[in-house]
Amino acid sequence: MAGKAPGALSRLIAHPSFRWGALLFGIIVLCAVFAWWLAPHDPFRNNFRTRFRAPDETFWLGTDRFGRDILSRTLHGAKVSLRIGLGVAALTALVGGTIGALAGFVKRLDGPLMRFMDALMAFPAVLLAIALAAALGPSEVNAILALSIAYAPRTARVMRAGVMVVREFPFVEGARAIGASPARVLLRHILPNAMAPLVVQQTYVFALAILAEAVLSFLGVGPPPPTPTLGGIIADGRDYIQEAPWISLVPGVAIAMTVLGLNLMGDGLRDALDPRLRTAIR
């Protein structure tokens, strides 16, 4: 049976890849949240005397061409990247989830809604984001909007499939037999049982959005400078990759660790919430 049976939480904690993923992601989130306290330097302050410093005891991870501290910029950049990832995961869950649930539950809406999603899916996410940034101007909110439009169809597909499976369970007919209205059947009986795949999917969307944000910032259509974003810092270091590789390397590793942590958590969630794999977890 789909759904979070009691015990899912303990299975989750017992799952090694979820534990490591949560640890890694948790550390990154804490670093980002407390960036203002943790960062040793002001991430925006230019200092021409400290340009292109290699990592030393003052600038632990070096400086960029304006003499700004890479560690401080990466911490603040992670904050922006995580905000974008969270925004995209939340917005796609809301919009894509609603569309998918309606498409899966109301047969009449299935065709039109999903063809519309297919059409959106056909657009490359980055192209869509560039177009939106060009139309509305580059900003954090527009990046979230663009990536959410691009990723909503995937979430909608997962939600639709889940709803269609649960819709056929006898307890749904049972709910109708006790007089529950269609809205009530969907919200109270179907959705809670179809949530598990959505939760897993959203951890991947979170990771995908962070990667895509890096691409957008690298291309110069993410949040505009001087706001530090992980992709933006990588782009800053692009021209000096031979002489000062730490500029691009540090935010690159931060992105990799964030995505790795999220994906490990997603795998753990998937195993813990998937009844067919339950026995495999020990």
């Binding site: 049976m1 789909a2 759904g3 049976a5 369970f169 006898p170 307890f171 049972g174 709910a175 809670p192």
Partner: peptide, 11 residues
């Protein structure tokens, strides 16, 4: 219904 196993909402 026939299937008491599946006729109750598991959550």
């Amino acid at each position: 219904f026939q299937e008491p196993m599946a006729s109750l909402n598991p959550v």
